[in-house]
């Protein structure tokens, strides 16, 4: 009886201990949860839903999380918590309504490239601009703010401009006068996509990548550095897309779109690590790391001409179409 009594004693205390541990270990918080039905959904915004134009040329998120959209011939719009604010020449000092490209600064400002110079809007709403007095019309193709805070502007026919902190200066080389896109890799190298190859600036000198080095085409139209430090390269006319891996090797990837030449207009990576390619004529292509998936009119997509890709602060993907407005895509869940 004594033995069974001690067993009971131990058991009683063990059980009490287990339950007390269970209760004190309770660590659950209340969250605002999303419904699964909202995942994997496409939504379209166009002039019928209040946008000033259906042709979207660039999408960029600022440091505060607002989404900026360039509308062809109609200025820019800022999408903030479900509301739009539009800026054009009639209600702001923006240089031109023909906005071509956008770039955000680390202090919450936005750089707005137009076909007539560059406008700057600070986070407090102050405007300024830059245009080269030596150039009749400074038509901007692309802008990038590098990790060191310097501004790089690629132009149509005028090479590129760099502001290292003391004002812009021009870098012009006739063979590379059209700078379509600018990207920085994780080592601080700057890549400039031109009509005649990919220029790499390592801080002291330039080198050139062309089809001879393995690029699918010399007309570089899109660059993107993904989370694995691969620099993706899209071209106008290449049969594939390419990427420079961290070892410096150039790899080519078929987009499985069946075309001998693809015009890639933008490249972006979503939060899952999938790489998205916006194209003209071949719609949208999502590469999940294994197989490229095609979104075209023939399989029910909105349009075959996609201009640009962006992402909002919640991880939703935004796609700017050539003529049918703006698409929002909430990532699917398995």
């Amino acid at each position: 009886m004594k033995e069974s009594g001690s067993v009971f004693y131990l058991l009683r205390h063990a059980l009490i201990l287990i339950f007390l541990i269970s209760i004190t270990a309770c660590e659950k918080e209340e969250y605002d949860l999303l419904d699964r039905e909202t995942a994997g959904v496409w939504s379209r915004f166009n002039t019928n839903s209040g946008l000033p134009a259906n042709q979207i040329l660039d999408i960029q998120r600022d440091a505060s999380g607002n989404l900026w959209v360039a509308f062809a011939g109609n200025g820019v719009g800022m999408y903030q918590d479900g509301d739009w604010s539009f800026f054009n020449t009639s209600n702001s000092p923006i240089r031109s309504n023909s906005v071509t490209s956008l770039a955000s600064t680390s202090d919450g400002g936005m750089i707005i490239g137009t076909t007539d110079g560059v406008s700057f809007r600070s986070s407090s709403g102050d405007w300024s601009y830059y245009t080269d007095p030596a150039v009749t019309t400074l038509s901007v193709n692309s802008i990038n703010v590098l990790s060191d805070g310097t501004y790089w502007i690629g132009t149509e026919n005028e090479g590129f401009y760099v502001d290292l902190g003391s004002g812009f200066f021009q870098v012009y080389e006739a063979d590379y006068k059209n700078v379509n896109v600018i990207e920085e890799d994780n080592k601080g190298n700057v890549f400039l996509g031109t009509d005649n190859g990919l220029l790499k600036f390592d801080g002291s000198e330039f080198s050139l990548y062309t089809v001879s080095e393995g690029l699918p085409d010399n007309d570089i139209t899109a660059l993107f550095l993904d989370s694995k430090n691969r620099l993706w390269i899209g071209t106008n006319g290449g049969a594939t897309v390419a990427y420079i891996d961290p070892t410096g090797r150039i790899n080519n990837l078929s987009l499985m779109n069946g075309d001998l030449g693809t015009f890639v207009t933008d490249i972006f990576e979503d939060r899952r690590g999938h790489i998205w390619f916006a194209t003209w004529y071949d719609g949208l292509i999502e590469y999940d790391g294994v197989v490229p998936h095609s979104y075209k009119i023939y399989n029910g997509f909105y349009e075959n001409d996609i201009n640009c890709i962006g992402e909002d602060k919640s991880g939703n993907m935004w796609f700017g179409l050539y003529s049918k407005g703006l698409l929002k895509y909430t990532l699917p869940i398995e």
Binding site: Y31, L33, L34, R36, A39, R272, G315, L331, I333
Partner: peptide, 12 residues
Amino acid sequence: WTEYYGLKYRNP
């Protein structure tokens, strides 16, 4: 719930 890409979704 389950988290997907930084967002928390209610389980079915």
